[in-house]
Simulated assay, not measured.
Amino acid sequence: MKQIDQFIEFVRDQYKTTDFIPLHEPRFQGNEKKYVLETIDSTFVSSVGAYVDLFEEMMAEISQTERAVAVVNGTAALQVALRLAGVKQGDEVLTQALTFVATANAIAYNNAKPVFLDVDLDTLGLSPKAVEAFLEEQGELREDGCYNKKTGNKISACLPMHTFGFPVDLNELMDVCNKWNIPVVEDAAESIGSTYHGKPTGSFGQLGIYSFNGNKIVTAGGGGAIVSNDKQMGNFAKHLTTTAKKPHKYEYVHDELGHNYRMPNLNAALICAQLEQLDSFIENKRKLAEKYESFFEEWGINFRKENPDTTVNYWLMCVELEDRKERDMFLNETNEKGVMTRPIWKLMYKLPMYENCFRDEQKNAEYLEDRIVNIPSSVVIDG
């Protein structure tokens, strides 16, 4: 396919290499070494240190929330955020099947049940209309919240995920969930720096979470964060993720079943240096997205771009191909020739541990699963 060869040539020209081109690799071109060495010199390399505190301050500012809490990874952040939102054993959580497995796993870690609802074609994320349709059919408001009148289980949270950095339609989703008294927890693992109507993703729900895995725009090697505009809830998140230990000079007193989900100061030093470059990284990626858009437009291929009233970080850029056959051909040829591309995730209910969970028709999710391919999206090194 001539277009694929030209695509490979185009990508190699952007990254100026004939070597293997990964989907997304980190860039360390700021104060990373300096801050990590300072941490080593201080001997505060574990879960207490100046960079942990600085990271939490920086994330509260970036997310425009009252409190941010450093944790070991995004999945841990999700698990605890759902617990804080009130998710308990046997409850149901409304979410999307078109997502990375951590979204569903975090629900299961709380011994709750994911309810998989469809996504919107334009956002790739949880559809407010699908949520509303499900609740109109199966929801029942009671004094202590919303229940599934068919199963009898409480619907204790709604968990949208901002796919590849593209914001969900948050205004409409928040309206639906507020009407049914369901807390929203935003899985903003992929969308740091993205905005919806001028506000950062992660700041709309009762809680939000971010991931700083090695393949994200900015990385701590791992790492995650919980954010909230409820400062008391944020402080409790800090308590739970640091083994629920009460402050004391020397006694070990733990008053909750806590988690050892603390981010080491070493990792915090790395992510602080990365966050200093977040704006420039996103600017760089948005320029690359413009080039991709122009390239694919010539071939009549739909390069996914941001919707009105949103600003997208373009964490992973993607194209929508004609069908699964064309998708698979594109994947095979690019990967065989050293340019990494990847299909969107397998839908969660197609995995053995979630195959018996409730799902709606999933018309849009299945359409996208057959067609969406991620393409190389790393920050381009100038010069």
Rank of each mutant, 00 (worst) to 15 (best):
G223V: 09
N265P: 09
R262F: 07
H248A: 13
Q277E: 15
G223A: 08
L266K: 02
L270P: 00
L275H: 08
I271Q: 04
A269S: 07
A220H: 10
D255G: 07
H248V: 00
K238E: 14
G221S: 11
K249E: 06
T241M: 06
E276I: 03
L278Y: 01
G224Y: 00
M263G: 00
H248R: 08
T243I: 11
K246P: 00
P264V: 01
L240A: 04
N229D: 10
H254K: 12
K216P: 03
M233V: 05
N267Y: 11
F212Y: 15
G222M: 10
G258K: 08
M263C: 12
Q274V: 00
L278D: 00
Q277N: 14
P247I: 12
K238F: 12
G221C: 09
N265G: 08
K249A: 15
G224Q: 00
K245R: 15
R262C: 11
K246Q: 12
A273L: 05
T219L: 05
H248S: 15
H259W: 15
N260A: 14
G223L: 10
G221R: 13
M263H: 02
G224R: 00
P247K: 13
C272Y: 05
K246E: 15
R262G: 07
Q277L: 12
F236Y: 15
F212K: 06
P264H: 06
T219R: 04
G234N: 03
K231Q: 12
N265R: 09
S211N: 14
